[in-house]
Design a protein around this nucleic acid. Structure first.
Length: 913
RNA sequence: GGGCGCGUAGCUCAGUGGGAGAGCGCUCCCCUCACACGGGAGAGGUCGCUGGUUCGAGCCCAGCCGCGCCCACCA
């Protein structure tokens, strides 16, 4: 991968040559530590290594090269008020895995992080503080209030960034951004101005989702629909000029005070004669035109709809298309306005509802009340019920922006993975509606619009104009701020310095990929694609990976308010960051999954096993520079251990710049493990590159645990202890590559182990990521060792079955080729016995009689196996006896079946009584 | 109302049309000089139900039952 020789391939500074590491006592100390520490201690390791990485500058790349050759990721900016939750941790683990892998591949890698000012959330936190002090934002005024929020941010705003460090996230902490920092505000204003100039941004009196909790309008996407049980009231509206009534139904009778029409379906024969006439609004006396509109469902209730354009989204549309009057009877404070009439003005909506119902009942207009379950909008921010009302707000037309953002996804220039989300995205984008971007808050980007107090002039500018150009009058700035998501929408390029043409922007935009939760696909992802194409003129990222949601252990949503949240930091304290990262990746999926303590434990166990297996290797490996036979068992200096001087060696051959060269495998087990290793590298890499984190983690785990530890280490131990240089070389090579392969998932423990590896010349964080070497794939060795393992397993199972004492070596005789040496050793059989009566056959092994074996149990075992074989033979014979199978199934499938049958028959023969 | 997805071992989940898997839990054996956060060996599954396609279905198709999520202006 194009790395030159030498210890600091990317121009990273050489390892700090700390004086203390050179002292003889520290060398001895490190060796002792490796010898004596039988449990991996994550807490101490993690803090120390993270500091070393940062000190090495590995996370802070130079702004050089092109986006195609570089690798960059923009973190989804957490709220500045936020604390790391499991979603952040999962997202962070995924991003860091890919970021670290690509950094190790030698790419100039930037992971940019920062925080979001989070308008409503942050304002709410500081307002709460003020309340506790007995004051309020209104009392102290806008300027003092925003100063307070800034002070709060300075004090507490770095919390979540610190928490990302605990996770081991290799972000560029030197390029941290905030959506309200100076340059970012400039970017936001530039975007606003340009969209305004294009006519996309406009101001209008329009129906909005009013959130009485945050006292602001919010966008459609911040509204969640909840199912509630209300009462459906049927009310009689008398028709003018006659004694007919129109009965309308509503769950919000208080809004009738703002009714300006009654509507029926144009095809509804029952009311055809009334259309064009009027009825009289009870309690108020207003004349309401009776109109025909297709929105009305004739099947619902009586088929007559009261139309309240001022307080119902649907009615608003009807009202606009019929030119109806728009009356507001509920104010932004949730109380009835003057328009509601003396009787109700000043009441809360709920009080008004009661009063209106009482009054209607009194007048005999209330025809029915029945329970009614339906969905109603609630604020995602404050949790309060949305009050739809008409208000003067800023909007952004999205249709034109959406077009190219649809194209790039259709053309797969932005890939959305898993693919079902691609369609969800496209469906939504094709029906996108204007976005209400103004918020009645104080904390945020104050809208860059100035109004003249003297004349009607309006100015939209990136910087405040001094005075009105027309009349020289005083200007005042718009009070509202922008929706927080307006600034998030430009995150991938604003963080890199846009609108300036910065080196960062040139080197790292577009970014490489984005991982996200699906809930912000529209809120954030879609908008980034739109602004990316509109402003820097390119997609913000090539891939969008939509990850699963981790649910609480019981399957409920993890949420602070439900008390179902699991704190990732507690898990890190308990099990280590590596364990959390491994666990999250291993449990992740394309579907939602429940949080699994077992997977975290598996990660913790893996870290511990990695530490211990490495101790075995490092304390016993003979690196070839010392006399054979020098090893820990003999109390000598373990040649395999790097004492951690950190001093780069003078000349490093290019071939081993990234570590050590491939050993020449001598024994079949060496060929086997190297083959298995390279297959695993290929497979794990492929899984990581396709965002299949769970399988990547599990495959790496399974190779390391089962194949390397359970088999290879056990097989090779005698050679290792004898100081066999070939075994040592193979082990050191495998260890090096396994550490590098696992580093993106388990950065800490792998880095710590690497610090003891004799081939170490720098941190593992910037060590080359292994590239699978096809030449080492060796199917012959794999088949042979697999056969040995199979035989070992069968022999062990047999011993267990006949309850042979664990320590006893059983006598046996082998006909034909002797099994590999390890078979007898690991299964505790001795194959060199001549005499004695065979009591059983396990494959080619004839077990001889010995007092420790229970003959009855042997018989049972034989019979069970025969039964198993008979059933397999019957299955295969049945299949092969089916003419259609033989004729229509692919030839190799049929052939395979024949081979199986032959094998089973042969074994059955062997076991015949 | 529309869309997407999920029902596989006691639990949490993989599973690519050709002999049902992992981790945890459970049972038995082993404190063997890397690791008891360990090693070895096991038990445990009419793959939600019904039909279809196919030589062959956990996997493809249809219907049904149960559960979840997203979108949506039927008061």
């Amino acid at each position: 991968w194009g790395r030159g020789p030498g210890p600091s391939p990317r121009g990273y500074p050489a390892l700090p040559n700390r004086g203390y590491l050179d002292s003889r006592s520290v060398k001895a100390e490190r060796r002792k530590r490796l010898e004596e520490t039988t449990r991996y201690e994550h807490a101490e390791v993690e803090r120390r290594l993270f500091a070393e990485w940062v000190e090495g500058g590995y996370f802070h790349p130079p702004a050089e090269g092109t986006p195609e050759e570089n690798y960059s990721v923009a973190i989804p900016p957490p709220n500045v008020t936020g604390a790391l939750h499991m979603g952040h941790a999962l997202n962070g683990a995924m991003q860091d895995a890919l970021v670290r892998m690509n950094r190790m591949r030698g790419r100039n890698t930037l992971w940019i992080l920062g925080t979001d000012h989070a308008g409503i959330a942050t304002q709410a936190v500081v307002e709460k503080e003020l309340r506790a002090e007995g004051t309020s934002r209104q009392e102290i005024g806008r300027e003092a209030f925003t100063e307070r929020v800034w002070a709060w941010k300075e004090k507490y705003g770095s919390r979540i960034v610190e928490q990302y460090k605990r996770l081991g996230a290799s972000c560029d902490y030197e390029r941290e951004r905030f959506t309200l920092d100076e340059g970012y505000v400039r970017a936001v204003y530039r975007v606003f101005k340009q969209l305004y100039d294009k006519g996309y941004i406009y101001r209008d009196n329009y129906m909005v989702n009013w959130d009485p909790g945050s006292h602001s309008a919010i966008s459609d996407l911040e509204v969640e629909n909840r199912e509630v049980e209300d009462t459906l009231y049927s009310i009689d509206y008398p028709v003018e000029g006659g004694d007919r009534v129109l009965t309308v139904a509503t769950v919000r009778p208080e809004t009738m005070l703002a009714d300006t029409a009654v509507a029926v379906n144009p095809d509804d024969g029952r009311y055809a004669d009334l259309v064009g006439g009027h009825c009289v609004l009870p309690l108020v006396g207003r004349r309401l035109p009776i109109i025909a509109d297709e929105h009305v469902d004739p099947e619902f209730g009586t088929g007559a709809l009261k139309v309240t354009p001022g307080h119902d989204v649907n009615d608003f549309e009807i009202g606009r298309s019929h030119g109806l009057e728009e009356i507001g009877v509920i104010g932004p404070d949730g109380r009835m306005t003057e328009e509601a009439g003396e009787r109700f003005a000043g009441m809360s909506a709920a009080e008004a509802q009661e009063a209106v119902v009482a009054a209607l009942r009194e007048e005999g207009r209330l025809r029915a009340e029945e329970p009614y379950v339906h969905t109603v909008p609630y604020s995602h921010r404050s949790g309060e019920r949305i009050e739809p009302l008409i208000s003067l707000q800023w909007f952004c037309r999205m249709d034109e922006l959406a077009k190219p953002a649809i194209d790039v996804v259709e053309r797969d220039e932005v890939r959305i993975i898993p693919s079902q989300w691609r369609r969800v995205y496209l469906d939504w984008m094709r029906e996108i509606r204007p976005w209400c971007i103004s918020r009645q808050l104080w904390w945020g980007h104050r809208i860059p619009v100035w109004y003249c107090g003297a004349c009607e002039e309006t100015y939209v500018a990136e910087e405040a104009p001094a005075r009105c150009g027309a009349c020289d009058g005083e200007l005042r700035q718009e009070e509202d701020v922008l929706d927080t998501w307006f600034s998030s929408a430009i995150w991938p390029f604003a963080t890199l310095g846009w609108p300036d043409d910065t080196p960062e922007l040139r080197a790292f935009y577009p970014t490489s990929f984005l991982t996200t939760a699906r809930e912000i696909l529209f809120l954030w992802v879609a908008r980034m694609i739109m602004t990316g194409l509109e402003f820097p003129g390119d997609v913000p990222f090539r891939d969008v990976y939509v990850h699963s949601v981790i649910q609480a252990r019981d399957g409920r949503r993890m949420s602070k308010s439900l008390g179902t949240g699991i704190d990732p930091l507690e898990e890190i304290d308990k099990h280590g960051a590596d364990a959390l990262r491994f666990g999250l990746l291993a449990m992740s999926s394309t579907q939602d999954v429940r949080f699994s303590d077992a997977k975290l434990q598996q990660g913790a166990d893996l870290a511990n096993k990695l530490w211990n297996a490495s101790r075995l290797i490092l304390l016993n490996a003979n690196s070839g520079q010392d006399q054979p036979g020098t090893n820990a068992r003999q109390g000598q200096v373990p040649a395999g251990v790097d004492e951690g001087t950190g001093a780069p060696q003078d000349q490093v051959p290019a071939a081993v710049a990234g570590g050590i060269a491939n050993p020449e495998p001598v024994e079949i087990e060496d060929r086997w493990i190297l083959s298995r290793l390279e297959s695993t590298i290929a497979s794990v890499t492929e899984k990581l590159e396709t965002y299949d984190f769970a399988h990547a983690a599990q495959q790496a785990y399974s190779f390391f645990w089962s194949e390397l530890c359970d088999w290879y280490l056990e097989i090779v131990k005698p050679r290792l202890y004898d100081g066999d240089p070939d075994a040592s070389a193979t082990l050191l090579r495998v260890l090096e590559r396994v550490l590098a392969l696992l580093h993106p998932v388990l950065p800490f423990v792998t880095e710590e182990v690497w610090s003891y590896h004799p081939a170490r010349q720098g941190h593992l964080a910037v060590h080359p990521f292994p590239l699978a070497e096809e030449a080492l794939i060796d199917s012959e060795a794999e088949a042979e060792v697999r056969a040995g393992i199979e035989l070992t397993r069968r022999l062990r199972a047999w011993r267990d079955l006949v309850e042979a004492p664990a320590a006893t070596v059983l006598p046996a005789r082998v006909e034909g080729a002797e099994p590999r040496e390890f078979v007898g050793r690991l299964a505790r059989f001795s194959f060199e016995q001549d005499g004695g009566e065979p009591v059983a056959a396990v494959g080619p092994v004839k077990v001889l009689a010995t007092p420790e074996i229970d003959a009855g149990a042997v018989g049972e075992r034989l019979e069970a196996r025969r039964e198993e074989l008979r059933s397999e033979v019957a299955r295969a014979e049945g299949k092969l006896g089916n003419r259609r199978f033989v004729e229509r199934a692919p030839a190799e499938v049929v052939e395979e079946e024949r081979e199986k049958l032959a094998r089973y028959r042969a074994e059955l023969e062997e076991l015949a009584e």
